[in-house]
Amino acid sequence: MTARLLKACALVFVLLLALGGAAAQDSVQTVPYLQTSGFNVPVLAGWDNQSTDAIAQFYSAEYKATIRAQIVALEDPPAAARTVLASWLDIETGPPVYNGKVNLADGTWHVLAFDINAATTASVMARRHGQGSVVISFVEAAPEARTMLLTLAQTDDALNTAAPEIDLALDPFAGVELAQLDDAGNIDMPSGQWQVYERPRLRALGMVFGNDSYIALQEGELGNLAALADAYNRTLLGFFVTPDNSLYLALGLAAAFAVLGLLVLSFFWRSRGIQQELALIETLTSDEE
């Protein structure tokens, strides 16, 4: 019976080792990510990667559009947004076409949109981060079109349509209502399913994610708005800052060392105690003799 038990134990042990190895295998599909010194964003496939150490920037020559993410040392997010545009495009921004706020999973974002000049439009999202602000901006420089990408909280989060928010965004952008556009069905992109509304020289896209609507509007010569909306959306949702928790790492290491140290020390103390007692017994017995 003992031999059989032993064999069973050995078998179980080997099996568990194999299981542990299997569990450690990472077999998930991976999305390439760009790591800058301060944050992480997904790498946009098909876009030109112009990133530096502190700025993530992707440019598309086809759409004449740029998506940029960076962290600026300004605590006021709207001011940070304007600073980014000013230093990047070398112009002073006028009053925004759209100005709003939205609460996403990682904080309150300020949403701003500007008409920079006849050819250029800029859409910016910015939020507080520590002593500075995260700014994610989209700049489109095609002279034949105006583009605006916005995020709005749903007015009624029970609805699974972005139509009310498209209506809200259309007014400041083009001075029209959603009712003046035709429903052009849905379009599937990697980021999700977008609703499309259009009329000649004006197109509006919307997608609900969480309790927020992601809106894309374009006026003029209509290009591939869905691709732009998808890329900006991916950058927004994929953006995250690696948390700084090295203190907890230090604490964990200290705990591990403390337990191991106590174990080894207790071996040492007990062994010394035994030695002392043995020496004592020896002296006692030799005294008697």
């Binding site: 599909q29 999305v31 999973a105 990697p190 980021s191 949702l237 994929g238």
Partner: peptide, 11 residues
């Protein structure tokens, strides 16, 4: 996977 990354997992 990332809680925010709706597009899938990553390395």
């Amino acid at each position: 996977a990332s809680p925010q990354n709706a597009q899938g997992s990553f390395e």
